[in-house]
């Protein structure tokens, strides 16, 4: 192979690979910008929570309604996350036979609720769904107008780890509002 052939092969090869990298990065950035990043390299995964709380077990297996824990979702802005005390309604080993909490993994996770002295501690969950800044999102009217939880949150009932399924960008919201004849006035959400 002489120098000429090297140049003939290498230059286009380098050029092509640079173009490819640019294209991939560009696709990635634009896709993330307009929608959500492609579900590769762990991007679509939900965050690792301080306590591995399996929604599957609670919703599908135990048949608990969403509103049992997310109590204010029908009336308020925030769906609200329950207090630790509410976990202990069912998981209080001293009082309830705890048939559903005796597995080793469950016991290990539940142990994280307590500090060394056995006092329950607050849990700092990592937010999974976060609308962009300057949006005043209110749960109540959505639920009251018949939007199901799964419309935005996906099939949480079968999620071991909760992840975001919709991009929740403004276009996503507005498209849905248009389709359902909901208000699209800017001041519906931005104030």
């Amino acid at each position: 192979m002489n120098n000429n052939t090297l140049i003939k092969v290498m230059v286009p090869a380098i050029g092509l690979s640079v173009a490819l990298v640019v294209a991939v990065v560009g696709y990635f950035v634009l896709q993330s910008w307009w929608s959500s990043p492609p579900a590769v390299l762990g991007f679509g995964d939900g965050p690792t929570q301080p306590i591995a709380f399996p929604h599957t077990t609670h919703v599908t297996d135990a048949g608990i309604d969403c509103q049992f824990c997310h109590r204010k979702v029908t009336t308020d802005e925030a769906a609200t996350i329950p207090a630790v005390a509410q976990c202990l309604f069912c998981h209080d080993f001293g009082k309830i036979d705890g048939t559903k909490s005796t597995s080793d993994t469950a016991a290990a996770e539940l142990a994280k609720l307590f500090d060394d002295s056995g006092e329950p501690q607050p849990v700092n969950w990592i937010r999974v769904h976060r609308v962009p800044d300057h949006v005043q999102f209110v749960h109540a009217p959505h639920i009251q107008n018949g939007v199901s939880c799964t419309t935005c949150h996906g099939d949480v009932a079968s999620m071991q780890v909760v992840e975001q399924v919709r991009n929740l960008k403004m276009r996503d919201c507005v498209d849905c509002h248009r389709d359902n004849n909901a208000p699209t006035d800017c001041a519906t959400c931005h104030y």
Partner: peptide, 10 residues
């Protein structure tokens, strides 16, 4: 901003 706290008693 990405934390939501579950307090112990509510």
């Amino acid at each position: 901003e990405i934390q939501v706290q579950s307090p112990v008693e509510l």
